[in-house]
Design a protein around this nucleic acid. Structure first.
Lengths: 352, 352
DNA sequence: TCGGGAAATGGTAACCGGTGTCATTCAAAT
DNA sequence: ATTTGAATGACACCGGTTACCATTTCCCGA
């Protein structure tokens, strides 16, 4: 693969080869152990020595080999993103957040989608993490809600952080998205507009967020003297198609709801479609609220009032927690869901 | 971290420790080198010996450590996805395709988004690939169109495959998406419907696909005796916002086009929005065609006629090429763009 | 000024878990 | 008996880290 070096290059020729820790040690006139101390920021190195070594490192553009380091350390400098969320926008935002947090850390991101319904799901996950000796993993919904997945990580000795709507584990392992608050915001908005016949399309039971979004919504309605009728609370699947179907069913009832809160933007898009098919105008005849504020929310017509989830920010937090670099200086509000009002909501139509 | 082992466990206790190649060698009564040969499918092992070793491997559930293997091999068993495409749907589909192809290969996927406009773009890319000693990378548009990026990979000795709309390199380094054909399909469809005043909103010049989609479109129009007027060929940025603006401008012309082909679905969504603002009905007054067939195409209203790009399939091909596992048995048509007709296209309105 | 002990620093060797090179063994072919 | 080539093993090495020990430096009291 590489050209054979001419003999006269001698063993000290560093120019054609990538420098290693021995080269640095030799040029700095210290042992490789001391170089290792500098790399790992050990306090037991005299400032003068450190500077000399750092100068050589900079001069040669040396970077320690992650593989060798990982091998000796017994753990790869890799962080895994484990997800089973089919929403591409979620995945990409989460990835971006993780990469934000990992920037300059020397870690790299390995992605691992999985299928929680597969019979070999847990074994696959275990063998993946174990074989790679991952430093840590970020578990996102709905995998994050599986106790067994977390248990496996603990068993293997792999650091983990679970991103979920509520706390399911010791605080150091949790990043809470507090979806309940988002549900409350949606309820407050619709109540304020004057709606009373309000419906809710939840996500699938297998997602904890489905429950949280709903109970926050219901709770805030009750506080305002409103009530989410049994018939008006239906279960979807977080998919566009399920949004169409549930929307169609809700709009066929009589009296029909004047407002529908969908558990995510995809289903809200489906509800808009169902409304069109039923000949209803949005927002004049029907108000619709989504959840997530992914790109689609602003592409729809009318543009969608929705609850924004700060996915990227959450991702950054998660990975910082994992690496023990958490920066608590940021505004904690930026981690919470917040309402974004667009065109799909308005006061209910006047009663005839 | 791990409990200290009791002395009586002895050095041969494999139960608490993850088995390594030495354990396998000892139990199989061979040298570690021979085990290594089996792992790497070397032909120079007697069938009998191989079976014995494989039995021990299976019994202990042994899996070689990728880090150690990579260190000795001089190359990590990692494949990088390098992208600067801001479209989440593209990224996720590409990732899924790569993972499809890597399944069971022992490789893992490391993602690396980058910003081609950053002044340190090339250095960042080089240091990422070099430090990690990546086995290979898949370069996707528009990074894939940068000669310097490819040159760096060649210099470092990192395998690479470039996914681009046309061939820009030796065939073994290219996966062509042939966007030109997609442009042709769009033109054929609109021409067949009877449109004559046809406009095109291209992507940014920095993407090769912008040019290819356009020239295929134009070429096929000409073949049908139609012509893409200068004023009707405008440049967008592959973004929703640019779709709105260009759409608005085109629809303000007189005579206005009766059909608009947008360079991707995002811009097509923008064009739909512009049409609504102009009080035009789609498809009665205006036909719109997109490109990509990502999720958004079927969420819009009306649903979007568009050119499907088999991104996931392309991803699988790319990574198989990289690993030298290419399977040519599949239908080559599945790699080409193809038209998907939905609701946003119809014959032009009758002339008054 | 000097001895003594703790703290700071550096060196050596073993090890992490594999692979490459080359030598050796052994059976079949010449 | 010699050649040939498949099958296997011995040993160094990839590039770091840890364990452990040796040495140096510094501060203190005598």
């Amino acid at each position: 693969m590489s050209k054979p070096r001419a003999p006269e290059d001698g063993p000290a020729d560093v120019s054609r080869r990538r420098p290693n820790i021995n080269d640095i040690a030799r040029l700095a006139g210290v042992s490789k152990k001391t170089v290792s101390r500098v790399i790992n920021a050990s306090p037991f190195v005299r400032a003068e020595t450190r500077e000399r070594i750092e100068a050589v490192i900079a001069e040669l553009g040396y970077a320690p080999d992650p593989q060798a380091r990982g091998l000796a350390y017994g753990r790869a400098f890799l962080i895994g993103l484990v997800y089973d969320n089919p929403n591409p926008q979620y995945v990409v935002n989460m990835q971006l957040g993780l990469l934000d947090g990992m920037k300059g850390s020397g870690f790299e991101l390995v992605v691992h989608p999985c299928d929680r319904s597969s019979p070999t799901f847990l074994e696959d996950l275990r063998s993946f993490v174990e074989r790679q000796r991952l430093f840590g993993v970020v578990l996102t919904p709905s995998v994050s809600e599986d106790e067994r997945a977390a248990t496996i990580m603990a068993e293997i000795g792999c650091a983990y952080v679970r991103v979920a709507s509520v706390s399911l584990d010791q605080p150091e392992h949790m990043i809470e998205t507090r979806d309940r608050l988002g549900g409350r915001e949606a309820a407050a908005h619709l109540a304020e507009l004057g709606h009373t016949r309000i419906a809710f399309v939840s996500g699938p039971r297998s997602f904890r967020s489905s429950h949280e979004r709903r109970s926050g919504f219901e709770e805030a309605l009750e506080e305002r003297g409103l009530h989410l009728a049994k018939a008006f609370a239906v279960e979807g699947a977080y998919t566009y198609e399920s949004g169409i179907e549930r929307g169609r069913e809700l709009l066929a009832m009589s009296p029909a709801p004047t407002a529908i809160f969908a558990g995510n933007d995809e289903m809200a898009a489906g509800v808009l479609q169902a409304a069109r098919q039923a000949g209803l105008r949005v927002p004049e005849d029907l108000s619709v609220v989504g959840f997530d504020d992914f790109q689609i929310a602003s592409r729809l017509w009318p543009t969608l009032t929705t609850v924004r989830t700060p996915t990227r920010e959450i991702g950054r937090l998660a990975v910082e927690r994992l690496m023990g670099r958490e920066d608590d200086g940021r505004d904690p509000k930026s981690r919470l869901p917040s309402l974004v009002v667009r065109e799909s909501t308005a006061p209910p139509p006047c009663r005839d």
